[in-house]
Simulated assay, not measured.
Amino acid sequence: MTTDTQQPIPWKTTIIASSSLQSHDVIRSLNGQQHRIRFSDSVECGVFIFPLSGTAFLVVWLDELPENVNETGLFEKIKNFIKVHRNSFLLLCAPFNGKRELDILSDIQQRFFGSNLRILPVRNNGDIIKGMLTIAKATSKPHVDSIQDRLSLARAHIIERSPVWKMLRDVKLG
């Protein structure tokens, strides 16, 4: 959607966040973009929920974890997170230029392979916000309907104009 001057209309939504995140920089940035933030003690630490899109994000800052990740309960926390949230995303925040970060990412991928968890490595708070908002916007109404309509139009256009499809239609008629 755009205005008369072709400026995009800012997207604003309601976000339910863990009460433990109240003073975090991510919350300040989301508030600055005028999203409505609701805090809940019943939401697990580090979790953001976007009710209109049905998505939930668990943010894990790898630099805050001790050397032995198995002792932190991280894997149990992720397991509980994906039990509760059907459309779940894990945002791993780290520079990802060291062996430790890549090993943790690999361990998580192996343990949760085949589950409904999607893993998104991010480097900083800006990436966290951008990743969450992009996914939440693309999966919320009416944006998801608009995206589906555009994909249908693109598909129809490809079928209508493609020489391969034209050849297949000709073969079928002949």
Rank of each mutant, 00 (worst) to 15 (best):
S40I: 12
D41Q: 11
S42K: 15
S42E: 15
V43M: 03
V43P: 01
C45Y: 10
C45W: 04
G46Q: 04
G46K: 05
G46R: 06
V47I: 14
V47W: 09
V47C: 10
F48E: 11
F48D: 11
F48A: 11
I49D: 02
I49M: 06
F50C: 12
F50I: 10
P51E: 11
L52G: 09
S53I: 11
G54N: 08
G54I: 07
G54E: 09
G54V: 08
T55Y: 03
T55Q: 13
A56S: 15
A56T: 14
L58D: 02
L58C: 02
V59F: 00
V60E: 15
V60Q: 14
V60C: 11
V60D: 05
V60L: 08
L62H: 08
D63M: 06
E64C: 05
E64Y: 09
E64S: 13
E64G: 02
N68I: 02
N68R: 02
N68W: 00
V69N: 03
N70W: 01
E71Q: 13
G73N: 04
E76H: 07
K77A: 08
K77L: 10
I78P: 04
I78V: 15
I78M: 08
I78S: 06
I78N: 08
I78W: 10
I78Q: 09
K79P: 00
K79F: 05
K79S: 15
F81E: 05
I82Y: 10
I82C: 04
I82R: 12
I82Q: 13
I82A: 05
K83M: 08
K83W: 02
V84D: 09
H85A: 03
H85P: 00
R86E: 14
R86M: 09
R86S: 12
N87P: 00
S88G: 12
F89L: 10
F89G: 01
L90C: 06
L90A: 06
L91R: 08
C93N: 14
C93E: 14
A94T: 04
P95E: 15
P95T: 14
F96K: 07
F96E: 05
N97D: 15
N97W: 03
G98W: 00
G98N: 13
K99I: 08
R100F: 01
R100K: 10
E101R: 01
E101S: 10
L102E: 15
L102K: 15
D103K: 10
D103W: 02
I104F: 00
I104T: 14
I104W: 03
L105E: 10
L105Y: 08
S106L: 05
S106N: 11
D107F: 01
D107K: 09
D107R: 08
D107I: 01
I108F: 05
I108M: 04
I108N: 03
I108K: 03
Q109Y: 02
Q109G: 05
Q110I: 07
Q110L: 11
Q110S: 14
R111G: 00
F112I: 08
F112R: 11
F113K: 12
F113D: 11
S115T: 15
S115R: 05
N116L: 04
N116Q: 13
N116R: 14
L117Q: 03
L117N: 03
I119M: 07
L120S: 13
L120Y: 13
P121L: 04
P121N: 07
P121T: 07
P121Y: 06
P121R: 07
V122F: 04
V122L: 08
R123Y: 06
